[in-house]
């Protein structure tokens, strides 16, 4: 019997590609977001409101990740920004290679911000670095206030939490303070925003933060 010592990260290949992506983004001074959430939390709606707010301020492009269809890319294309749809055909997350391939269709020279909307899934995308500068997890009030405790990996790896659908709070048993406290117990460093896309609440504050970060790079 012999033992080969490996001592390597299992996802090392993805991490290497993500580092390559990040290097490419930084070379072109492009700030990159990786938006993650469960299906239906409102990632695409937040993205739409964000694109409206950033129009004329920050040149933005979008990569859409979905298991099937280009419905989201069609929604986003209405905002007159470059958009690339990745259809994973059953794959439950985006990885760094998929983003690298999608990047060939985006003129990084022409943009300051790239928003990657990951596949709706609160588990799998947590493990895969895409080369982003900031992972944004969206939790909606309709999902309840216990999700950070149930899906800690995602909240642990994010740096921003957007709590969406706050206009529905009066009709739900979800407690906003409990949701926030649970998220901060998993990741005390989270920056938290509260939004409603339908009532247009909190979007301006989120976009101000985003503009500042994008300009810093």
């Amino acid at each position: 019997m012999s033992i080969i010592t490996v001592e390597r990260k299992v996802l090392e290949k993805n991490d290497e590609l993500a580092a390559q992506n990040r290097q490419m983004f930084e070379k072109h001074h492009v700030f990159v977001l990786n938006m993650v959430s469960s299906p239906g939390a409102g990632k695409t709606s937040i993205l739409e409101r964000t694109l409206e707010e950033l129009k004329g301020f920050i040149q933005t492009a979008v990569i859409e990740g979905d298991v099937q269809t280009d419905i989201d890319a069609q929604r986003v294309a209405k905002y007159d920004v470059p958009v690339v749809q990745i259809v994973t055909n059953g794959g439950c997350h985006l990885d760094a290679k998929l983003v690298w391939d999608a990047m060939r269709n985006i003129d990084l020279q022409a943009i300051q911000l790239l928003i990657i909307e990951n596949v709706g899934n609160l588990v799998c995308p947590a493990n895969y670095d895409l080369g982003e500068h900031c992972k944004v997890v969206v939790a909606s009030t309709t999902e309840g206030d216990d999700k950070p405790l149930k899906y800690p990996a995602m909240f642990r790896n994010a740096s921003v939490l957007i709590i969406n659908k706050i206009d529905l709070l009066p009709y739900l048993s979800c407690n906003l303070n409990t949701l926030k406290a649970n998220a901060l117990r998993i990741n005390p460093a989270l920056t938290v925003f509260e939004t409603s896309c339908t009532a247009n609440q909190g979007i301006a504050a989120w976009c101000e933060w985003l503009k500042k970060r994008a300009r810093e790079l």
């Binding site: 033992i3 010592t5 001592e7 390597r8 299992v10």
Partner: peptide, 30 residues
């Protein structure tokens, strides 16, 4: 559970030492 709160004093000001690993350490060959 992944909760970053001290068991003893309740402070959230804590350093994570381990728990996020996904590493291959060794391969055993016959």
């Amino acid at each position: 559970t992944g909760i970053v709160v001290c068991d003893t004093c309740g402070s959230p000001d804590a350093k994570v030492l381990s728990g996020a690993e996904l590493d291959m350490t060794e391969i055993e060959i016959l």
